[in-house]
Amino acid sequence: MKKTSLILLLTILLYSCSDNFSNNNPYIPNYTFSTTINLNLAQFSDLKFVSNAVYIGQPGVGVKGIYVFNTGSGYNAFDATCPNQTLSDCSTVAFKKLDSSDPLKVDKTTVVCPCDKEEYSLFTGQGKLQYPLKQYRVEVNGNLLRVYN
């Protein structure tokens, strides 16, 4: 009886420690990538402040680039591809505009898909449709962020 209980306990502990990071979305391919962001560089300085995000659109990083966001307790990284649309010219999310007459006034906590006008929170990746933004892992090492899939 003790051996059975011990084996059951060890099995439960083993499965509870596994990495259950699920990132499946039928519209967004699973590309493997890794990129490092140096927070000391000017183009990433917004990430030093809570509720700020930056878009990184370099080739090979995500499908259509990524958004990295400072949540206040860490960082989120999401693919810049609309999660509920097939890949097309209009399937790249962009910061939500606050003033249509001034394109520089944007909400850096929300992105919008131009195809369907759906909004997604950079705090959670959630919108109102079936699939949330595709999230990537973020590893913090001092002033360096490693975003990877």
Rank of each mutant, 00 (worst) to 15 (best):
S16N: 14
S34V: 03
G74S: 04
D107Q: 00
F123C: 05
Q130S: 11
N143Y: 04
Q43R: 15
N20P: 02
S22T: 12
V106D: 08
K105P: 14
C115F: 03
T86N: 15
K2C: 10
D19K: 00
Y27G: 06
C115M: 10
N38D: 15
F44I: 01
V61D: 07
L104G: 13
Q130N: 12
Y15E: 08
I12T: 11
T86W: 15
N38C: 05
D89N: 14
L10I: 10
K2A: 11
I66L: 10
T11C: 15
D102S: 02
C82I: 01
S18A: 14
T92N: 08
F69A: 06
S88K: 07
C113S: 10
G60V: 03
S5M: 12
V54Y: 05
N24D: 14
S22N: 11
Q135M: 07
L8R: 01
S34I: 00
Q135H: 08
Y136N: 01
S91A: 15
N84K: 05
V61H: 02
N40S: 12
P103E: 14
S73G: 09
D79C: 01
L87P: 07
L47H: 03
T11S: 15
V147M: 04
V93Q: 09
N38S: 12
A94E: 15
S5F: 04
D102K: 00
N141G: 06
V93D: 10
L10A: 11
Y131C: 11
P103Y: 02
A42Y: 11
F21T: 15
Q130F: 14
Y120M: 01
T81F: 02
P29T: 03
D19F: 00
F78T: 03
V63C: 08
C17E: 08
F44S: 05
N40I: 04
V140N: 14
V50S: 06
G74D: 09
K117M: 08
T81V: 03
E139L: 09
N25Q: 07
P59K: 02
A53W: 02
T35D: 06
Y136P: 05
P59N: 01
V61P: 07
V106W: 02
P29W: 00
S91Y: 02
G65P: 13
N23C: 10
D46E: 12
V63L: 08
Y31R: 12
N23P: 00
F21V: 12
S34G: 09
V112W: 07
S101E: 12
P114V: 01
G57Y: 02
L14I: 04
L129E: 15
E119K: 03
N38G: 09
D79V: 03
V93G: 10
V138D: 11
Y75C: 15
L10V: 08
S91D: 13
N24M: 07
L87Q: 14
Q85G: 10
Y27R: 04
K2F: 08
Y148S: 06
I37L: 10
L6F: 07
Y31C: 13
L47D: 05
T92F: 02
M1A: 13
K134I: 05
K117H: 11
V138M: 08
V93Y: 04
L6I: 09
Y131L: 07
A53R: 03
M1H: 10
